[in-house]
């Protein structure tokens, strides 16, 4: 593999890891709220969370482009407030990966919270625990394996993200080029041989990641 190919691999790993870390706190909070609380508008929020799974990725990318471009409502605010450019930078890659993998994290973490017997939480309350303590010491630890599995799925999804990233971040060498984008570009240019190493590396990384996730989720509690 060339130095440029390795740079693409490491960049993809970095943005995938970063996007997963960024969505983790929000994803866990949303999953818990959906699993454990009744509130007005819950069905609407649940549907919105799931939308990126079903809307064409390029459409999601276009929406992000409209929101985060310098003339978009969020992009202009970020530019004015923090001096941050999003679109066509590495931040756009992270953003696209985060949005596209968010539903997988939430769905898996939600199932994990629903799998925790509410009796444990109830008894913790009778033992004097506040709602925050019940969450931090009972719900979260007992759902950890499911949350880790969700994070692994989200990471693997981010590794393979293509459509939304292409629209909102472009295919800029050494700036926004990920494994998926590079494979696509190489094939478009007829450089199939250059795409093959990236193909095998990406399969290897995702295989190891998902395998680790499986092992973690199958591990018995002490």
């Amino acid at each position: 593999m060339t130095a440029e190919a390795w740079q693409i691999v490491f960049f993809t790993l970095e943005v995938s890891a970063l996007s997963t870390l960024l969505i983790l706190p929000l994803g866990v909070a949303v999953a818990w709220l959906i699993a454990r609380r009744e509130w007005p508008g819950k069905a609407v929020v649940e549907t919105m969370v799931m939308l990126p799974l079903f809307v064409p990725p390029v459409a999601t990318g276009l929406l992000l482009l409209m929101l985060f471009s310098r003339r978009g409502p969020l992009g202009s605010a970020l530019q004015r407030g923090l001096g941050l450019d999003i679109v066509f930078t590495w931040r756009a890659v992270v953003l696209a990966c985060a949005v596209m993998s968010f539903p997988l994290l939430v769905r898996t973490a939600q199932a994990a919270f629903e799998g925790v017997s509410s009796r444990f939480e109830d008894i913790a309350r009778t033992l004097g625990a506040s709602e925050w303590r019940v969450f931090a010491t009972i719900s979260l630890p007992l759902a950890t394996r499911g949350i880790v599995a969700g994070a692994v799925l989200a990471f693997a999804r981010a590794m393979g993200e293509f459509g939304a990233t292409a629209i909102v971040a472009g295919m800029i060498p050494r700036k926004t080029m990920t494994i998926s984008l590079s494979i696509y570009q190489n094939i478009q240019l007829g450089h199939d041989a250059a795409a093959l190493p990236l193909l095998f590396v990406s399969i290897g990384i995702v295989f190891i990641t998902v395998l680790c996730g499986q092992i973690i989720s199958m591990r018995k509690r002490p």
Partner: peptide, 27 residues
């Protein structure tokens, strides 16, 4: 949490991720 009414349910609901000592000290 403010009622100070203890409850031992039918399935006991011992916290499976905590050792006996931590279970005892929980409340």
């Amino acid at each position: 949490r403010l009622r100070r009414i203890g409850y031992v349910p039918q399935d006991l609901a011992l916290f499976p991720h905590l050792k006996v000592r931590a279970n005892l000290l929980y409340g």
